[in-house]
Design a protein around this nucleic acid. Structure first.
Length: 198
DNA sequence: ACGCTGATGAAG
DNA sequence: TTCATCAGCGTT
């Protein structure tokens, strides 16, 4: 029986495309987090694309600041920020340097390291481990120390998972945003129980 | 439906 | 310096 490749990282070229394309392509890919000699992994089941200055809902809409500086850098780096004073959100920078696009990772389906995720999340319920952007950062032990980290070199990266057929992909407006509502920039795998719900 | 929680950036 | 805002979560 074949075992999945957990070491080959997606190359920088993968991220060097429009956030809309990358957000869709990331579905079915696997986020790998090497944590204390343990492998934590989850398949991406929900993403959101954020564009640069043209996107009022993007952190980059009002230009470069201390917080969003990583978005303005080259693709293939992690952009992490604190939201609502309590939770972290993980984004991947996409597109050429200066365009300031990113994809928010909104939900994963746990693949490996479930026991450790349960400890990190302080819950035994599988459905609740990674079914939201704040939850998955907790489950993978991702904090501000990952902001600006290279996704092609370190202990956080993405590997090729299984292809998701186009009919299985759903789109919708982005969750929880008030500006630029209505744009279908959220992508998810239909009927996957780990997609976040509100 | 609501409270928690604190960084952020714009206004003054 | 003050203030409204915020791409969330958990409990009710």
């Amino acid at each position: 029986m074949n075992h999945p490749d957990t070491t080959t990282k997606l190359p920088r070229e993968f991220y060097d495309r429009s956030a809309l394309t990358v957000a869709r392509d990331l579905l079915g890919k696997v986020v790998i987090r090497r944590w204390r000699d343990i492998l934590l992994a989850g398949m991406i089941v929900e993403t959101e694309a954020y564009l640069g200055k043209t996107d009022a809902a993007s952190h980059a809409a009002r230009g470069k600041t201390g917080r969003n500086a990583v978005m303005f850098g080259p693709p293939g780096y992690a952009y992490v920020y604190l939201i609502y004073g309590r939770y972290y959100c993980l984004n991947f920078v996409t597109g050429p340097e200066g365009r300031a696009e990113a994809v928010l990772i909104r939900a994963l389906e746990p693949v490996a390291g479930v026991g450790e995720m349960q400890t990190l999340r302080q819950t035994s319920r599988h459905r609740n481990l990674t079914s939201g952007p704040g939850k998955l950062c907790q489950a993978l032990s991702i904090g501000m120390d990952f902001n600006g980290r290279d996704l092609t070199a370190g202990r956080l990266y993405v590997t090729a998972g299984k292809a998701v057929p186009a009919p299985a992909i759903g789109t919708s407006p982005r969750i929880g945003i008030r500006k630029a509502a209505g744009l279908p920039h959220r992508y998810f795998i239909r009927n996957n129980p780990y997609v976040s719900s509100r």
